[in-house]
Write a protein that binds this DNA or RNA. Structure first.
Lengths: 143, 143
DNA sequence: GCTTGCCTTGACGTCGGCGTCAAGGCATAC
DNA sequence: GTATGCCTTGACGCCGACGTCAAGGCAAGC
């Protein structure tokens, strides 16, 4: 199969495949006319890459999985190096999720504080004539 | 105060300040010799920007806060436009956290599956002589 | 005068994963 | 022959928030 068909079957583009090749993942044999030629194994390999990419793995992080498949294993995550990447990614995700949760809480607190400050202004009918800060009703409409 | 001192007091770099200026945030008056001159209000403004940046806000998203401060408000998040950014960011964060949590769970499941598959191999002492997949003991050491 | 240190503008580099265009070769259909 | 559609390599573009370098001006100390 040629590059266009492989790309279509994996739900990606020819450009991406050439890029993977330039990075040393997904090598291709060549037909007589110079066209890249792929087989079903290449498709499995590519699908492994795409799955991990969809998870947010960097391309380099997919390399152990690819090499594991190339080594003849039925699954790319059978080898120790792949498992190590999984574990690193889990730790990374946990850290990131925690960070984002912390930011979320802080932003939420800031919002609550700012909203109650505005509520006090409205209650006292103390609307200062400052441009950009009139009572527009947007406070309600965007919740 | 000049750009170097302002940058230092806000914990950032002169390059960042010139970049903010190029984006229309943080304008500066000029001294006679052409040097940028800042005052304490600029510092407050810059600190608002940095705080939001540390939260992961894009520079454009800090603009309403900056304009709110410029309009004379004591806090940058008093104005409706700023509150709207807070709310958008909360929704964005919730979505992202949910996505990451989903990915985390999937990766965790994959890891568990792959680990138990290897455990079965080890139990049966069926270690195939495939390069890159020998029993190296790394499985234990990297958890 | 000379050095040092801060300032100026301008412009190119970084990172990842491609998108997009250019110029041309190959293969099939009409 | 030629129009179409796939393929080839090469190279520049993109995004965000700056980093870094270049070439030169300004101010103060010795």
């Amino acid at each position: 199969m040629r590059i266009g068909e492989l790309a279509a079957r994996a739900g990606t583009t020819t450009r991406a495949l050439r890029y993977y090749e330039s990075r040393g993942l997904l090598t291709a044999r060549r037909a007589e006319n110079g066209y890249r030629a792929y087989d079903e194994d290449d498709l499995r390999l590519l699908r492994q890459i795409r799955t991990l990419q969809d998870f947010g793995f960097e391309l380099e992080e997919t390399r152990p999985f690819v090499e594991c498949l190339r080594a003849g294993h039925p699954a790319g995550d059978t080898c120790p190096a792949s498992l190590a990447v999984y574990r690193r990614k889990l730790a990374e995700l946990d850290g990131l999720i925690g960070q984002l949760q912390s930011v979320r809480d802080q932003v939420g607190a800031q919002l609550a504080r700012a909203e109650s400050a505005r509520a006090e202004l409205e209650a006292g009918s103390l609307v200062p004539g400052v441009p950009g800060c009139e009572m527009t009703g947007m406070e309600e409409g965007l919740g």
